[in-house]
Design a protein around this nucleic acid. Structure first.
Lengths: 279, 279
DNA sequence: GGCGGCCATACCGTGCGGGTATCGACCCTG
DNA sequence: CAGGGTCGATACCCGCACGGTATGGCCGCC
């Protein structure tokens, strides 16, 4: 199977429309139809059900869409990593969620930079859930992830830190004097709803709570008494005097891990991971 | 990057010889030279150092060899899984090491087969270290692995069982009456050396100890008083009265896990894993 | 110095990927 | 029910890129 065929199939499977897929691929529709037919013939499997009502995926098509996307990401990763290995300054790219674990990250970067024969490390700031993708497609070599929020499926990891979560409240809120609170108590504050974050596609889920796009917005809303938020306790460094924090007793602990794609253990990467474990 | 180019590069990188690689690919040598040059141009990276002394990999070439192999395996996996999903009887393929965890496996298969809407499960017996590969390239959907012997890097896993290891001795051996022994004591038995297993490429490592190819051979050698072996305690079911076993106190415990490629969680696979956790 | 091994270059044919035009099936809609 | 619109498939043509053969250039070796 050639990557061209796979790209074509993925485009059609995503659009469920030959014309639009062809446009996206910048080719005409007939060659696309032929390519898909040829792919189906070669695989000996029907991938798409076409009739007058449109195009639908068969079971085999769903499998190929899932597996094919992963395979294409693997190809792109190979390409990008090769380019980077050949670059004049072949450093490491570390992906991290914007704003999270900033203290740990700073310590890690400082410790690693102080090591003998450390390579330059670029930091790539990602939106939520984006890290796994940039790691898989070769834009990054290593990432800081936060379980249980980020999935570490298919990655090699080492645990760097564990921490409790705290609720961020407006300063002076009645609960702010407490030693700890429960998620049920937080949910029972109708005037301080938890915010809604955008999906991967940019839309917002339904429900109450203000829509926020970044943590600056969120912190402002909290200071204004319009929302509250549950965050790892290390995020306290971003707060100021208009905020109060209280430990949430029954929220899951957050584990910060350093993660990298399996079997891509270059010497520099191994060195960085070793340093991270010593911090 | 097209898979054709990648296959060509991997062939040259493995052979380190354009002529032999071309032969392996069943094309003439000049088109192969051209294809590699074109790939290097497109990547903007020198992959191979050619001079009169032969062909060597550059750093970028090493990266592309490693990543490219994985990417090609991903493509093949997508292809195989699609074919299987389209097959008349789309079942699951479970890979396991020949002879290991047979009891657990039997229970798992029975329990799953008894479930409502279970799909057929084929068992694929693998040599040591082979399971990870068949899982990656799509010949199997799920595998039973044994840590710390098998690597689970880049796979999703759930733990099914943990067990101690025992040493298998000829019946009547002086140590056979003991409650437990240490690895040091076993190593100090010069007339009962540990056997040598073949590498992935079929050769044997140097050293003392008889060469064995399967566990039947090994068990016979032990019964004859020519070897001993350290195995998980569940392997006791394969033994007969000519063998004795003693717990090895300082051998690592063996963890049997069920493993599958990440993000390939079909409903049937999820069902099988759920069943396995209940056994 | 001639020879052989090995990769690169030159040059040629052809098959395949892509383009345009058109068909055929189906669904609206007036 | 006729006519137009939508969408995928088919027919046909063209150009190029891939693969083949022949040969060159470089180097090491006998």
């Amino acid at each position: 199977m050639e990557t061209r065929e796979l790209r074509y199939f993925v485009a059609v499977a995503e659009e469920l429309h030959f014309g639009r897929a062809a446009e996206r691929l910048r080719i005409a529709q007939p060659p696309l139809s032929r390519a898909i037919q040829q792919l189906e013939r070669r695989l000996g499997a029907r991938l798409l059900e076409r009739d007058s009502r449109g195009v639908r995926l068969t079971e085999a098509g769903r499998v190929l869409l899932r597996e094919g996307r992963a395979a294409l990401a693997g190809i792109e990763a190979a390409e990008r990593r090769t380019r980077r290995a050949a670059a004049a300054r072949p450093g490491l790219v570390l992906a991290t969620k914007a704003g999270a674990s900033s203290e740990l990250l700073a310590k890690l970067l400082a410790a690693y930079a102080a090591e003998p024969d450390a390579v330059p490390v670029d930091v790539l700031l990602c939106g939520p859930g984006e890290q796994e993708r940039v790691l898989r497609d070769g834009r990054a070599d290593v990432a800081l992830l936060h379980r249980p929020f980020d999935s570490t499926a298919g990655l090699d990891t080492e645990v760097l830190a564990e921490e409790r979560q705290v609720v961020v409240l407006p300063a002076g809120h009645p609960l702010s004097g407490r030693r700890d609170v429960t998620t049920a108590e937080i949910a029972a504050l109708p005037d301080l709803p938890l915010p809604r974050w955008p999906d991967l596609d940019g839309g917002y889920p339904d429900g109450p709570g203000p829509q926020v796009r970044d943590s600056v917005q969120l912190m402002q809303l909290i200071a204004l008494g319009r929302a509250c938020a549950i965050v790892p306790e290390s995020a306290r460094t971003h707060l100021h005097e208009q905020h109060a924090t209280v430990t949430v007793s029954d929220a899951p602990t957050v584990t910060t891990v350093i993660a990298w794609p399996p079997q891509s253990r270059s010497p520099a990467l191994a060195h960085l991971v070793r340093t991270a474990l010593g911090v």
